[in-house]
């Protein structure tokens, strides 16, 4: 009897999980449905409604999406490369060197975890404008290149590397930079992957700061392009907007489906302090 009860409970749990999962996936499924069907089927769910890619072709012709995609790609790569260099150096400094004022400086760095650059967009806009960088891709990336989050994660990872390994390298006459490059970086590979995935998805999706700092097609990332394209005053058809929406999220979504485990684990990793 008890066993039967457990069995029923288990089935109920499984069913509940599936229902909730389905509910959660529904908006995304709907976006794909609407993007791949003619406008008259966007809320008319007939199983054999004709499929079409016309919405994509039209969205593509209405706005320079290839250019937006390229901009986003350059932006994300630029930020990630700069973050890896700056955060690696700083994390190494914080993890393995004793220097004057270290704890105070570290606390000041961590302030950025709470007060992200987009909160200070008024003054950061002023700074970028004084540098003469308005409406450029580096301007979108600059405030994020030194990331407290990255420094924190890498420092945690560097601290777990055994001192004996470092000492052995020192005995062999490897320089401080050599130790960083040959011991610390290779042994922190999983942290780099985790941080990289979190950073790429953050900056692929980031919107408010790019919106204020860009003003032309030459620098606008996908999210800003999509927002302008989808604005009600643009008068574009709903199906075409969903096609554009699907285009914007597809690369990241595809990466997520292919590397599901790594994604979930990376976000997990990034939350453990």
């Amino acid at each position: 009897m008890k066993l039967l009860e457990i069995g029923i409970g288990k089935t109920a749990e499984t069913l509940g999980a599936w229902m909730l999962g389905l509910l959660w996936l529904l908006p995304v499924v709907f976006a794909f449905w609407s993007a791949f069907h003619p406008a008259e089927y966007s809320t008319n769910f007939e199983l054999f409604a004709p499929l079409t890619t016309d919405n994509f072709v039209r969205a593509w012709s209405y706005a320079p999406f290839p250019r937006y995609l390229l901009n986003t790609f350059i932006l994300v790569t630029l930020i990630l490369a700069a973050q890896f260099v700056l955060c690696t150096l700083a994390a190494y400094g914080f993890a393995r060197f004793e220097f004057f004022g270290k704890n105070v400086i570290f606390a000041l760095v961590l302030l950025q975890l709470m007060i992200m650059p987009e909160i200070l967009l008024v003054e950061n806009y002023r700074t970028i404008s004084k540098m003469g960088l308005l409406d450029t891709i580096p301007a979108i990336g600059l405030p994020y290149m030194a990331s407290a989050f990255g420094i924190f994660l890498l420092r945690q990872s560097f601290k777990t590397i055994p001192k004996e390994l470092v000492e052995a390298a020192q005995v062999e006459g490897v320089s401080a930079v050599g130790i960083l490059w040959k011991v610390y970086v290779p042994l922190s590979r999983s942290t780099y992957i985790a941080y990289g995935l979190v950073s790429v998805s953050y900056h692929w999706n980031n919107f408010l700061w790019p919106l204020v700092i860009t003003s032309s097609v030459n620098s606008r990332p996908l999210t800003v392009g999509l927002a302008i394209f989808g604005a009600p005053e643009s008068g574009v058809d709903w199906s075409i907007i969903t096609a554009a929406t699907v285009m914007t999220m597809a690369p990241l979504l595809l990466a997520f489906i292919l590397f599901q485990r790594q994604f979930v684990q990376s976000f997990m990793h990034s939350g453990i302090k």
Binding site: L86, C87, L89, A90, Y92, G93, F94, F97, E98, F99, F100, K102, I105, L108, V109, L111, Q112, I115, P117, L120, V122, E123, N124, R126, T127, L142, P143, M145, A146, A148, I151, A176
Partner: peptide, 26 residues
């Protein structure tokens, strides 16, 4: 140790203060 430590953290600390601490004051 002091000099190396400072040199390593300096680029990142400079960038963070430029876009976080300075704008708070400003």
């Amino acid at each position: 140790n002091h000099i190396n430590g400072w040199l390593l953290v300096l680029p990142a600390v400079f960038m963070i203060s430029l876009f976080t601490h300075f704008p708070i004051g400003s």
